[in-house]
């Protein structure tokens, strides 16, 4: 069995450096279908397990408002990688964790690689990675991609996450009472369609429909979930 791994993160956080550290020379470069955005894929073997790693474009969010975001988001939603490694710039954590929260909402099988630890240290930042891991409900691995610090631990974490054995807390981001009532209501409507709710996380669909995310509206139209579309006043 090959473990499918996707690397995702903000621009310039060291995704390609991590990709190179993970895959060494076993990589090839192509294009994403239909666009001229570069697609890097590579392989590595660790403790007898084979992984296929994809380096996704750098993005700040997961809406479909730019080609890079569309590529990254579609890859996570449609290709369903076994493990998603979110590369976080430890020297710029507030901005970076926004994408992390979006990935948690997407219910990806997530690992956080806290990269650029050397730069963070030179700024005097200290991290309680265990606490961060507890708060996010996912493994957090400190790395310095350029010196390969933490790469072995990252590979171990990937294998463990792929095995599905690691005990993680499911973290939900709350939006306050008013919105939660609506989210629950829409979630229930979505649950009535077992195929729909088996294909996409229902809470994620509910939140995105309230945001009037065009792709999610498209999904609900395909599934003919008129009741949900009516809730948000969506009519063709």
């Amino acid at each position: 069995m090959i473990i499918k791994v996707a690397l995702i993160g903000n621009p310039n956080v060291g995704k390609t450096a991590i990709f190179n550290a993970l895959t060494g020379s076993r990589q090839h470069v192509g294009n994403w279908p239909g666009v001229t955005v570069e697609k890097k894929e590579g392989r590595c073997t660790h403790r007898g397990a084979e992984m296929e790693v994809v380096d996704l474009p750098g993005i700040y969010s997961l809406t479909a408002s730019s080609i890079d975001e569309r590529i990254a988001r579609n890859y996570i939603i449609k290709e369903r990688p076994d493990v998603v490694v979110d590369i976080v710039d430890a020297s710029n954590i507030e901005r970076n964790l926004y994408l992390t929260l979006l990935l948690l909402e997407l219910e990806a099988n997530l690992i956080v690689a806290l990269n650029m630890m050397d730069i963070a240290a030179s700024k005097g930042y200290e991290f309680d990675t265990e606490k961060l891991s507890l708060l996010l409900g996912v493994p957090v691995i400190p790395t310095v991609a350029t010196t390969h610090f933490g790469i072995r631990e990252l590979k171990d974490a990937i294998i463990e996450a792929a095995s599905g054995k690691n005990k993680r807390r499911k973290v939900t981001i709350g939006y306050g009472e008013d919105l939660e009532t609506e989210i629950r209501r829409i979630e229930e409507m979505i649950m009535e369609d077992p195929h729909l709710s088996g294909t996409y996380p229902p809470r994620w669909l509910a939140i995105k429909i309230l945001e009037r995310d065009e792709e999610v509206i498209g999904i609900l139209e395909r599934y003919q979930k008129k009741d949900v579309l009516e809730v948000v006043g969506w009519e063709k």
Partner: peptide
């Protein structure tokens, strides 16, 4: 956006989403 963005979206009712 969770957290600080809440001030902007927080108190808006569902009816205003189409605005």
């Amino acid at each position: 956006m969770p957290g600080r963005g809440g001030r902007i979206f927080g108190k808006r009712g569902i009816n205003e989403l189409g605005d």
